[in-house]
């Protein structure tokens, strides 16, 4: 286990280096000359050249990359063009707001996904099973940004039950209950696709386990069907489910949540990425991408470790 952990941590280094190299490449490819930004288009060629030399822009790409990386490591992530503030603190601030939404969506996805998957497996080939499968296919096919609009139209505009967006009401109480109310719709919408995927994986993993001989042995011991399914079949399917859930949560924080944050004006990472794309704020956008990548990679590590912890067969070797 320790050896595995050491290996896995060591492997973080190339992964993060690779990811940062991709981000750096994107910076280089981005349209617009940084000198234009600094000096304006009308500066003399000599002055431009001097500044290029000063900032090392004539150096080979890899030198520039490592210089950039050095800045990143020191916490100097550049300055947002739109907001005229350093990128890193801005990103950190948004990160927690996104985590809040991800938590809600993840919770929804796990409860609904695992629940539906287990029910579908237990009632394999029944009408319920087929219905769950059908709903999951449609949930997968549903664009979150569109479903968000439909929800807003239904529950906010028409029924007036829930706020249309944002994280807090402008007026009135600033309680946590208020935040919770704002979280319901985006949480459900963002959680729907992962729920569908988790349901399918949970169903498959449960069926795989329920075919095995020891299920008969459990019933022969006199265990109730409930105990057989929940205490044993689900427990055996858990490593597979955790693996897939971790991956889905990763995509969720950094992907699906993006569209949902835009639709519901949830002021997190995704909404910020959207604003920086619209405003052509490349330093901000790439800072957000880099940060998200780090989170993504660390999350994958966490899932891998967790998978080992709950799976004695893998843990042993």
């Amino acid at each position: 286990m320790l050896r595995f952990l050491a290996w896995r941590l060591l492997f973080l280094i190339p992964v993060l280096l690779g990811a940062s190299a991709v981000v750096f490449t994107l910076i280089q490819l981005a349209p617009g000359d940084p000198i234009d930004v600094l000096m304006g288009v009308f500066a003399s060629p000599e002055a431009r050249e001097a500044l290029r030399a000063k900032y090392g822009l004539n150096d080979p790409a890899y030198v520039q990359y490592f210089r950039w990386l050095w800045h990143i490591l020191q916490g100097d992530w550049g300055v947002s063009i739109q907001q005229r503030r350093p990128v890193l603190p801005l990103v950190m601030e948004k990160f927690w707001i996104t985590m809040l939404l991800t938590g809600a969506a993840g919770l929804f996805a796990i409860v609904v996904g695992v629940g539906a998957g287990v029910i579908a497996a237990v009632k394999q080939n029944s009408l319920t099973d087929r219905l769950i499968l059908l709903v999951s296919v449609f949930s997968l096919s549903m664009p979150a940004y569109w479903l968000g609009l439909v929800f807003i139209f239904l529950f906010s505009v028409t029924l007036g039950w829930l706020p249309t967006g944002g994280m807090r009401s402008f007026m009135g109480e600033k309680s946590n209950l208020d935040v919770l109310e704002h979280m319901i719709m985006p949480g459900v919408v963002a959680g729907l696709t992962p729920a569908a995927i988790i349901a399918r994986v949970a169903r498959a993993a449960m069926l795989e386990g329920m075919r095995l001989d020891y299920m008969t042995a459990l019933r022969a011991k006199g265990l109730s069907e409930r105990a057989v399914i929940l205490r044993h079949a689900l427990r055996n399917a858990l490593p597979t489910i955790v693996n897939m859930t971790g991956l889905q949560i990763g995509y969720l924080i950094l992907g699906a949540a993006l569209f949902v944050e835009i639709i519901f004006s949830w002021p997190g990472l995704g909404y910020e990425i959207y604003k920086s794309v619209i405003g052509r704020d490349m330093p901000m956008m790439l800072g957000l991408v880099l940060f998200s990548t780090i989170v993504f990679v660390l999350l994958n590590l966490l899932v891998d470790v967790l998978y080992r912890v709950i799976n004695p067969r893998v843990r042993a070797d």
Partner: peptide
């Protein structure tokens, strides 16, 4: 396989958006 892991450690949706934003 590891090469793919290393170069594409970025979450896919974000990578696509970043590339699309960069390319225009």
């Amino acid at each position: 396989m590891r090469g793919m892991d290393v170069v594409f450690g970025l979450p896919p949706i974000l990578l696509a958006i970043a590339v699309a934003a960069t390319l225009g």
